[in-house]
Nucleic acid binder design. Sequence first.
DNA 1: CCCCGGACTGACTGGTCAGTCAACTGGAGA
DNA 2: TCTCCAGTTGACTGACCAGTCAGTCCGGGG
Lengths: 228, 228
Amino acid sequence: MASARDAEEAAADKPAGPDKRRMILDAAVVAFAKRGFHACRVSDIADEANVAYGLVYHYFRSKDEVLDTLFLERWNVLLEVITEIDHQTLPARDKLYAIASFIVDSYRHDPDLMKVIIVEVTRAANSFGRTHLTAIREAYALIAGIVEKAQADGSFRDAVTPGFAALAFYGAIEQVLTGWIFDMLPRGDEEFDQAKAFIVETICGGLDAAAIHGTIGRPPEPSDRMGR
Amino acid sequence: MASARDAEEAAADKPAGPDKRRMILDAAVVAFAKRGFHACRVSDIADEANVAYGLVYHYFRSKDEVLDTLFLERWNVLLEVITEIDHQTLPARDKLYAIASFIVDSYRHDPDLMKVIIVEVTRAANSFGRTHLTAIREAYALIAGIVEKAQADGSFRDAVTPGFAALAFYGAIEQVLTGWIFDMLPRGDEEFDQAKAFIVETICGGLDAAAIHGTIGRPPEPSDRMGR
DNA sequence: CCCCGGACTGACTGGTCAGTCAACTGGAGA
DNA sequence: TCTCCAGTTGACTGACCAGTCAGTCCGGGG
């Protein structure tokens, strides 16, 4: 991950080379997380990084590019990790657990970064979400692939399509992170680990006490309430 | 729902009384959906409503108040509907289906409104999401209550807490809507109805082919990958 | 007939920022 | 010593836009 940076630092022989670009990126995470991308001024980033305003524009073409960089840097790691997990020989359920685990741990490790990624990109349908749609879809496709294989070998039933299962799985994860981001859910090592288990349990095990697996229950009559 | 408006119109005896306030609200939905709240200018709303700029400020104190109104108007309906569903004597699974159904149908009926509510409020941790947190939590609490009762009477197993199940359930719904909002998922009457069934099936029935319900599977060893 | 007040209009103001740029610094090489 | 230039600085500009306000229009009551 940080190998390029390590090499550069070693070559430059600076004990704790400031690496202003990195400082700006890290400061941007804090600033974006605190006030949100729109409300955050470029001067907030510069201040947080203890760096002159103009330097941000030395390293990045625009405020947008700072967020893009932050997102892609991390999302590519996620994509790599999922791919790697998928290549292991593991029950699908364990693969999903490993993925949930990685994402939850990412939040535990750097809540601000994950908050920014989720709130400003992954869920921002009118701005960055659109521009990074391809990368986001890739994650879904990877998860769907895991489900599909499990359905093929019979370890998952095929009551729902793989794409749909991927959506629900990732949706549950993001919703839990959102719960933490909004301070709706208690945070703590115990809660984080419990969340991983609960996510997988909910999506894989289901809620029904007597699940007659294999047959999809025909939907009950729909409610007719339609407002507005 | 629109009874207050009907009464007003009847009293005023206007054949198609413009009701500019409503026109502004409806125009705002279109404008916010198209460009997002931040990128949308107040003049966009006024233009869309065929109304003078200043009139927006005659009916609303600020641009924010327009969104607040839009959100609360609809969210209160949702809260009412969930409460009503909960009061019926129905298996928990059917209650959840009715809720999913109502939300999906809300999207079917007015995709722009739901897009605005989800993107600009429900998932906006730094702006409106915070200010409407109480209302949002209410919906979770209602859903959690349904799960809790089902666990008490034994129709749902208690491998996960009610609050967590509510989170996953609502998260799955929102993620599906997000899929439509992002144009990641095909839209159509068939897809909408399938989605309702899939959401409930995923959350209630689970993915595992051989779910040994009643015992919570101990988590497999976690992945140690930790990046950044 | 006039007055009042609510509905309505849109030009204008004040403040806010993203992005620019001219200037400065310090170290490496000639 | 003198370039040179990447890295660095922060004052400044130009655009944009939420919100204001002075004023018009019109219907109803006196």
